[in-house]
Design a protein around this nucleic acid. Structure first.
Lengths: 191, 191
DNA sequence: GTCTATACTCAGATAGAC
DNA sequence: GTCTATCTGAGTATAGAC
């Protein structure tokens, strides 16, 4: 699977998530990988093609990890916490959400890339909504609440950039637990 | 107040909020204003100085508008709705939050600028928290809930970029009304 | 205040040698 | 696969003419 190629993709992801989309230039990728930018062009048709590939990979990887974590969990509240844990882990590693970085880049992305980002967001919204629907009597409001939760998680991750204590993301994570508690019957044991 | 200077600042704000921080280059500002980039340098020491000025202006303008809207409102629920309305208006005009654009720009900003952004965020958090504290019995959780609300509003605004229907931001706005309803005694009249 | 001219750097992309 | 060399265009910034 072409070692250099996948290495370049990994470097690109790091640049985007730790810095900005803009920072993932062919020159920079080459510099980090120890080759010239012209050699990077050998592995990818152009920059836009690479970026699109990254978004699609990201969606795959994200949901694989999410499902792995929720795999043997039946409680909706615990599943939501796993999602929050994924965001908290990301924050601790000083990683942004790749898709949010794309969203923030605005017209520096093309239509295909924007569509791929939107697909990721809607898939995650759908996932959250399905979890909520199983949690309580709020089956009607689940899609709406899912949008709020996604917005809060993504917003908090971005706002807590350079904030080691992650005050916003922790607040969101904590809020999620209270949300589920009021939606389901079970009592919390130890917090 | 130097017409050209304030015009350049206005153009810069538009570039950042409609596109990205990156799009607010001296060349671009000059092009839109009809002068050369070297002439832009006459009005601002350098780009970083301009950007810092913009963030400080933004904080001022934002809270002036917010206070104007809440001026003769005593109900906390209505005040929160005015905040949401500000975000919805922004979305309709296809404007991002300037501070979120800075946050997303990561290391393309300097320490001073990041500090100014963080100051804006904390001031808004404090404002929301104060409103919440007056709303109900949740005085303890007000600061935490304020962080969730701010994250949700900012996140939704960014996620709904290029989404004319603004599904996330509308969901957040609606969620805010239910929040207050359950926190206060009064019944909603007409939505 | 604005211009031209210039210096330097960075970006994407391609041609052709090895 | 990677290199050098090159083109084009964009960015910050400065010096000095008008």
């Amino acid at each position: 699977m072409s070692d250099t190629r996948s290495q370049l993709k990994q470097i690109a992801i790091e640049q985007i998530r730790r810095r900005t989309l803009h920072a993932a230039s062919f020159r920079e990728l080459g510099k980090v990988a120890g080759i010239k930018s012209s050699s990077v062009h050998y592995h990818f048709e152009n920059r836009d093609a690479l970026l699109l590939e990254l978004v699609k990979d990201y969606e795959q990887d994200f949901f694989i990890r999410l499902e792995q974590r929720c795999h043997e969990l039946s409680d909706p509240g615990q599943q939501l916490q796993q999602l929050a844990a994924l965001f908290l882990l990301s924050q601790q590693s000083q990683y942004q959400c790749l898709c949010l970085a794309f969203a923030a880049a605005g017209d520096e992305t093309n239509d295909q890339q924007r569509a791929a980002v939107e697909q990721f967001l809607q898939r995650l919204e759908t996932w959250i909504s399905a979890v909520l629907a199983r949690a309580a009597d709020h089956a009607d409001s689940a899609p709406q609440l899912a949008r709020v939760i996604l917005s809060a998680l993504e917003g908090a991750l971005l706002l807590d950039r350079d904030q080691p204590q992650a005050p916003r993301l922790n607040a969101v994570s904590q809020w999620l637990t209270t949300l589920i508690r009021s939606h389901s019957d079970q009592q919390p044991e130890t917090l």
